[in-house]
Design a protein around this nucleic acid. Structure first.
Lengths: 334, 334
DNA sequence: TTGAAAGCGCTAACAT
DNA sequence: ATGTTAGCGCTTTCAA
């Protein structure tokens, strides 16, 4: 009735279960026993029971990836990156969706504590609470964070260099002649909002460009939000460009400009952030900053695996990956 | 060094491990022992080892969800639906990404065979090969399919009623006066392409509308594809509406019409299928068919759980869920 | 209500 | 190269 076990295999192959186990684990056995083993396994349709193995080995060769919401496709490429390196190192990925899980916000910790996974990667772009960080540090399981990070957390993390990204944009705009640049900021619950705005302000200062608090308007990162923000910004006399802190907002800004009779980029330049797929389909194709999502996943995965292997030489604790400016057609060279 | 075990708990609570186990599994123990147990567990930071439990119980209370690509966000709501019912029945979800997994196309079968999960839900909208179906039927693990299904497969499945969806569209168009309707079909590797086209052809016939092979043009379901297809369709004399078999294609069609100087819906009506988020942002907001994704996930999850519980009364083997027409502004009432 | 003991399917000394 | 044995951490009879 039950599934065939290693004992059954041993029996039909006329050997002992240790030999079966050794064979299964890649140790060499005599040619003839190997033959017998192979045919026994085939005949019985034997498959090892990972639960038994995990119990004795005390590791799972699985890593847990916890996201706020599995149905949020913004992570997609990050997940691909993690899976890629995890698989190529013999690790399986198990996803845990934080919000949709009825075990609650910290339910993912059980994954580690109950020994379902050997390590954890937490991906979230929301600001992480002190409580979360403390809990995570108390865990004996190796862990790495993707997204909101802090130099002082003493837990490994990788993030986009948001500040750098926006700085690049400002410099680009400056290079092609813009001097009066507006900024549409994002929701405060995302840490990137802080860093991107910092990039904007810092770059203006570096370039000795004029700035004014009224040139920064907040939005909720939605298309409508971008639309509203743009309407305000367009009132500013002499403004020639606006930087939106994400693509949806930028698209809203584009639409708004259009409706109000402005031509982009002739009358006003706009640039976004993220490089979401639609950004190249809108009219005009949006100049934006491409997030190195896949690469972030790779780096985080690699870092976790190094930890799991107890390797000493590792990536910097807080790794910031530089995003890349994608110049398309939404900016005018003055 | 090692993690605390049930034995440690027994020792500090001055009782036996069987009692600890019973307590952990919800059996009642004496008031005092309960107290002792609770404080021992807390003191030791004890967490049960699921691998040991799974080994003896011979089930995992986990279901595997296998998708073609975890990074394809089209499934999102399906996953949400499955997670929802799975969690509320005490099951955990484990995701398995088929293509990105180096274990190969059938690697997901190990999930079941190695007893990592109690059941499997396979979601894919690509046509499934005979080989896959056979393998899956041979599995002793309960399984349900989402997406491409076949009445004769004798494996439970749920899918959208694609034929019904397009039929609704044709009837709607007919009701508002359209008589000459073009159709942009999709790639043959998706089973829905077949059913949707069947819906189009069947409805035309039912309504005694004229039809012509040249009114159906194939596309690859991309925006560019829709663009190209539309250019052809626009050459047809007297055509007043075109149905695209997905939203991206419909958006391409919209763009094409615009570029060629047609006004939508004044000069030509267009409707899509899927109701992807952008479809309401485009101009004009796209009339389309909303896929009951979340519901499909729920139904499939429920069906699997019934199987796992050995329940007799179950959903029909092949469950087709009706999608819903969302009338927005891309169709004109003639 | 509790404890003792057997056993889930596997791995890893240790011995041969 | 292989078999014997002890155990991984838990659940579940069975007896008390």
């Amino acid at each position: 009735m039950g599934n065939p076990t290693i004992n059954d295999v041993a029996r039909v192959a006329k050997t002992s279960k240790s030999t079966v186990s050794r064979f299964l684990n890649g140790y060499t056995v005599k040619k003839e026993t190997e033959q017998a083993l192979r045919s026994a396994i085939k005949e019985l349709k034997y498959h090892p029971n990972v639960n038994a193995r995990r119990l004795v080995k005390n590791h799972t060769r699985a890593i847990g990836i916890v996201v706020d919401d599995i149905a949020n496709n913004f992570y997609s490429d990050i997940l691909r990156g993690i899976e890629m390196v995890a698989n190529s190192h013999g690790y399986q990925c198990i996803y845990y969706s934080r919000t949709s899980n009825y075990q609650g916000e910290y339910g993912f910790m059980d994954l580690a504590q109950e020994r379902q996974v050997d390590g954890l990667i937490l991906v979230s772009f929301l600001k992480r609470s002190r409580g979360l960080i403390e809990k995570v540090k108390a865990l004996s399981t190796p862990i790495v964070l993707i997204g909101d990070t802090n130099k002082n957390d003493s837990v490994s993390s990788v993030d986009v260099d948001n500040e750098f990204g926006i700085r690049e944009v400002v410099h680009y705009l400056h290079r092609i002649g813009h001097r009066k640049i507006g900024y549409i900021s994002g929701p405060e619950e995302f840490s990137s909002t802080y860093w991107r705005r910092k990039g904007y302000e810092g770059a203006l200062e570096n370039l000795h460009l004029k700035s004014d608090p009224s040139w920064i308007v907040a939005s909720n990162w939605s298309e409508e939000g971008g639309h509203r923000a743009m309407r305000e910004l367009l009132n500013i006399n002499g403004i020639t460009a606006v930087i939106a802190s994400n693509d949806e907002t930028a698209i809203g800004a584009l639409l708004c400009a259009n409706e109000l009779g402005y031509q982009v980029p002739l009358d006003i330049s706009v640039v976004g952030f993220d490089d979401i797929p639609v950004s190249k389909w809108v009219y005009p194709p949006l100049t934006t900053v491409k997030q190195p999502l896949y690469q972030m996943g790779e780096k985080a995965g690699l870092e976790l695996i190094k930890k799991l292997n107890g390797e000493k030489e590792r990536l910097p604790e807080r790794l910031l990956i530089k995003p890349k400016l994608i110049a398309r057609q939404s900016c005018r060279n003055l």
